[in-house]
């Protein structure tokens, strides 16, 4: 499954410019330290964090996309930094718990 499939099937908004890539597993956390300790390459990272720190953190662990939940407004500087690093920033109005149900429905497993 690719980021393109996930975006289309769930109806996510794309906030940054990026190349689609293969998705492997999901990691849900709002703690950057947890993401850096636990997320794996290719994971979708589900979070409500929007601060631009999420971009270097996502980059460090090579996640396939950041999905920002609960309709949080994402600052432009976060999107700018994501564009610069080819990091996919997606968003949804669903809260994390509900999005997890949909991702699970697509057959995605945990990290």
């Amino acid at each position: 499954m690719t980021t393109k499939d996930v975006i289309e099937k769930i109806g996510l908004r794309c906030l940054s410019n990026f190349e689609h890539r293969e998705v492997e597993g999901v990691f849900v956390s709002d703690m950057l330290s947890d993401v850096m300790a636990g997320a794996k390459s290719g994971n979708l990272w589900v979070t409500v964090q929007t601060h631009k720190s999420i971009v270097p953190a996502a980059n460090l662990v090579d996640v396939s996309a950041i999905i920002i939940t609960s309709g949080k407004k994402v600052p432009q500087e976060t999107i700018d930094l994501a564009n610069q690093h080819d990091i996919a920033v997606l968003s949804t109005d669903l809260p994390s718990f509900e999005l997890v149900g949909k991702l699970y429905g697509l057959g995605l497993v945990s990290s």
């Binding site: 999901v26 990691f27 636990g38 718990f97 997890v100 699970y104 945990s110």
Partner: peptide, 22 residues
């Protein structure tokens, strides 16, 4: 021991559990 994703999935699988909205 579960991570957030698995924990959410397991709870969602329990009947009658509601989802929190903002």
């Amino acid at each position: 021991e579960m991570d957030m994703y698995d924990a959410c999935v397991r709870i969602a699988a329990e009947e009658g559990m509601a989802v929190t909205h903002a």
